[in-house]
Simulated assay, not measured.
Amino acid sequence: MRSFPPLPDVHGPQAAEGLLTGHLWLLELIDGTGLRFRMDDSGLLRFGDPETTFAGPEAVPVALRPAVRAVRERFDREALREAVDDPEEVVFFGVATHHLGTDYDWDRIPAFLGTDVWIGEREGPDSDAGAFRPPDAAAAIFEGVGLAPVNAVEREVNARDFDPEGYAVPRSAWRDGPAAGVVVRNKRGGRGKLLVGDETTAASENGAGGDRDGPDADGPDTGDLDADDPEAIAARYATDDRFDRVVEGIERRGEAATVDPIADRVVEAIARETPVRFGDGGGSADPERVRAAVIERARAVFEGR
């Protein structure tokens, strides 16, 4: 699966030559983790983050599972088959939105926002193969297959009228506060990022998204919570409101809202929407232990419905 395109700082030494020429698109920089996928001939979608590809659903990090599920449920496979000769030559890139310091409105922001589309080799004299599509074309492709593209802040800005030194990063479309930054792109493939303040860091490998701290924080803060205390995590974050939203989402898809899927989705929601980190590293919570604590609460919710 093709790698994410580099996204250097507009002001940095790796800035793309000729980026600030022609007409520019300014896209909101989303604080999240890069997620890429492609479709096999069978229609199976295969996913990866910026560093690896996932062998199967169980290998997807907990915080990214809502994004993977959203893509699987909404992706229009037939639309892709009708649009290209070889669907396997198309790679989609975007951001799995989850809490990395920026507190988005999690009810509104999609779990996945598309940023780039790569179309591989195709035969024919009019081939536009082997390239990332321009931002307007990529947005149209995402909409055509049923997925939301990252939002544009401004379109077709004449580079002569754009001053990166004096540019004020706008408010986010997905929170009550500033965007993490903007991605500057031209139609020849040049791209770079402008961040909120010098202290903000975002990973260059993540398309139109960061992978560390957003504009709200220097790092994840769970207050007095101990990552090794699943009962405390469940008590704070497995709230009635979160259960209600999870149950409503399951039932809206026509699925049975039983204890196991409720607990799974609540743990995923905690991983996506809160500062709790799940994984194998130090300071990370064990998803299975948190799930066991959430199950007890899920049973009470399920029995009360």
Rank of each mutant, 00 (worst) to 15 (best):
S204Y: 01
F162G: 12
P164F: 11
R191W: 12
F162V: 11
T200M: 08
R175K: 07
R175E: 01
K187H: 07
V196A: 10
E165L: 12
Y167V: 00
L195E: 03
E205G: 12
G189P: 02
R191P: 01
E165Y: 08
A179E: 01
V184D: 11
R171H: 07
A217W: 06
S172N: 05
G214S: 00
G192K: 04
P220N: 08
G192P: 06
V169W: 10
D221V: 15
G197D: 15
R191H: 09
A173Q: 07
V183A: 09
G209M: 04
A208S: 11
R185G: 05
E199W: 12
D213S: 14
G197K: 01
D221R: 15
A168T: 14
E199Y: 04
A202P: 00
G214R: 03
S204R: 04
K187E: 14
K187F: 01
T200D: 07
P215K: 08
V169N: 10
G207E: 08
R212G: 12
R188Q: 14
D198S: 09
R212D: 13
S172D: 08
L194G: 00
R175T: 13
A179S: 15
S172P: 03
F162K: 09
E165M: 10
F162S: 08
A173R: 13
E165N: 01
E205F: 05
D218L: 13
D176F: 02
K187L: 03
A203N: 09
A173H: 15
P215G: 09
A208T: 10
G219T: 06
G192A: 06
G189W: 00
R171G: 14
D213I: 07
P215Q: 11
A179C: 14
T201W: 14
D176R: 11
P170A: 04
E199K: 02
T200W: 00
V169D: 11
S204G: 10
K193S: 11
T201S: 12
L195W: 00
V196T: 14
G214N: 00
D176M: 00
D176S: 14
S172Q: 05
E205D: 09
G181P: 01
D163S: 12
D216P: 06
D176A: 15
G166L: 13
G214K: 04
G181K: 03
E199V: 08
A173N: 09
R185Y: 03
V183Q: 00
S172L: 04
R185D: 07
V182P: 04
